[in-house]
């Protein structure tokens, strides 16, 4: 069975590029693209929700 990929929504106008989500993602799914974050490797996401929990700016939402 194919595994269901999560949806990671990044609200670019809220993101301040602090790196917190990039650093504390355990599987290195996220990266900085210029001043805002972007999804580099969605397949590696383990849906732990750490990025959503830690973002100080309400800028990242994970729907598992």
């Amino acid at each position: 069975m194919e595994k269901k990929l999560p949806t990671i929504e990044i609200i670019e106008k809220y993101c301040k590029g602090c790196h917190i989500c990039v650093e504390f993602c355990p599987t290195k799914v996220l990266e900085m693209k210029g001043f805002v974050v972007s999804v580099k490797n969605l397949e590696a996401c383990i849906k732990c929700m750490q990025c959503e929990l830690r973002c100080p700016d309400f800028a990242i939402k994970v729907t598992p």
Binding site: K16, G17, I20, E52, P56, D57, F58, V62, T63
Partner: peptide
């Protein structure tokens, strides 16, 4: 589901004024 923080935030108030990485958020 992603957590719906917006239901407790006044519409149109984000982004907030705090600096990048400030823990207040």
């Amino acid at each position: 589901m992603a957590y719906d923080y917006e239901k407790f935030i006044r519409p149109g108030k984000l982004p907030h004024i705090w600096c990048p990485g400030c823990g207040h958020g």
